[in-house]
Computed example of a mutant assay.
Amino acid sequence: MKRIFLFLAMSTLVLSCANSQKTGDSMAEKSSKVDYPEGVVPVSEIDAPYQDLSKAVFAGGCFWCVEAVFERVEGVEEAISGYAGGTTPDPTYKKVASGMTDYAESVIVYYDSTVVSYEELLTAFFSGHNPTQLNRQGPDVGPQYRSAIFYANTHEKEQAAAFVEKLGASGKYDKPIVTKLSPLGTFYTAEGYHQDYIVHNPNQPYVVGVSMPKIEKFVKAHPELLKSQYRKP
Score class of each variant (00 low, 15 high):
Glu29Trp: 13
Asp52Tyr: 13
Ile46Arg: 06
Lys30Asn: 07
Glu29Ser: 08
Gly60Val: 10
Ser54Gln: 14
Val69Ala: 09
Met27Thr: 08
Gly60Asn: 11
Val40Ala: 03
Lys33Ile: 03
Tyr36Glu: 11
Met27His: 12
Lys30Arg: 12
Pro42Lys: 02
Val40Phe: 10
Glu74Arg: 06
Gly61Val: 05
Pro42Ser: 09
Gly61Asp: 05
Ala56Trp: 11
Pro42Gly: 03
Ser44Tyr: 02
Leu53Asn: 08
Pro49Asn: 04
Asp35Ala: 00
Cys62Asn: 01
Ser54Ala: 15
Glu45Cys: 00
Ser31Gly: 05
Ala56Gly: 02
Arg72Ala: 04
Met27Gln: 12
Arg72Val: 10
Arg72His: 08
Ser54Asn: 13
Ser31Thr: 01
Val41Gly: 06
Gly60Trp: 15
Ser54Pro: 03
Pro37His: 11
Ile46Ala: 05
Cys65Leu: 01
Glu74Cys: 11
Cys65Ile: 03
Phe63Gly: 03
Val43Gly: 01
Gly39Glu: 10
Val66Thr: 14
Tyr36Pro: 01
Trp64Pro: 00
Cys65Ala: 09
Val76His: 06
Tyr50Trp: 12
Ala28Asp: 15
Asp47Cys: 04
Arg72Ile: 06
Glu74Ser: 14
Asp52Thr: 14
Pro37Ile: 07
Asp35Ser: 10
Glu67Asp: 03
Ala28Met: 07
Tyr36Ile: 13
Cys65Met: 04
Lys55Leu: 09
Ser32Tyr: 09
Val66Gln: 09
Lys33Gln: 14
Ala28Phe: 15
Val40Asp: 11
Ala68Phe: 00
Val41Cys: 08
Lys33Ala: 11
Val76Gln: 03
Glu67Ile: 10
Val57Phe: 10
Ala28Leu: 14
Val69Tyr: 07
Ala56Asp: 14
Arg72Thr: 04
Val76Tyr: 07
